[in-house]
């Protein structure tokens, strides 16, 4: 089942990218998709029936808006630090506890953290995520875990878990 799902996704992606609906092109697309599916099918994370539940898509749209807003804020934040003559940075690596179990949801959370103000994911070990932060504002673990991942965790739980 996961192989078929991956094949369909890859084939649609090929058609959209090449945008050329002649027979030769479609045949090449099928061939390339089959080869890729055989090679990488075992890494594909297939959630099964979960992808058919509509409320997940609703939360995905809500999450996207919050995420884009955070992303724009991140850019102005970094731009301010770059252009300021004294460069107000206080970098460090902090350790934040994760409340999410599944691998795919963790990957999405790590990507979201990387795109938001001043933080880059360095590593995930067991239940902790290590984050490089450009301005470590507090020394209190509770407070900075709220700042780093608190906004996203509840949405990602609803969408991907």
């Amino acid at each position: 089942m996961r192989y078929i799902a991956l094949f369909i996704i890859l084939f649609i992606l090929w058609l959209l990218l090449s945008f050329n609906f002649t027979l030769t092109n479609i045949a090449i697309g099928v061939l390339v998709s089959i080869i890729t599916t055989i090679l990488f099918g075992k890494y594909f994370i297939y959630g099964g029936i979960k992808f058919l539940q509509p409320q997940r898509y609703f939360w995905l749209v809500v999450y996207l808006f919050i995420f884009i807003w955070e992303c724009i804020k991140a850019n102005f934040d970094v731009a301010y630090r770059v252009l300021h003559p004294a460069m107000p940075i206080k970098p460090g690596i902090v350790k934040v506890k994760l409340g999410i179990k599944s691998d795919f949801a963790r990957m999405m959370l790590a990507n979201s953290i990387t795109m938001t103000p001043g933080t880059i994911t360095v590593d995930i070990i067991d239940d902790y995520i290590y984050v490089h932060w450009i301005y470590v504002s507090t020394d209190n673990p509770e407070e900075y875990s709220q700042k780093v991942s608190g906004k996203f965790e509840k949405y990602i739980k609803k969408i991907f878990e």
Binding site: K90, G92, I93, D123, I125, V136
Partner: peptide, 13 residues
């Protein structure tokens, strides 16, 4: 990490 760094939790992993 650079000289300005204040914290490194990843060091002792």
């Amino acid at each position: 990490l650079g000289d300005k760094s204040v914290k490194d939790d990843y060091k002792d992993v």
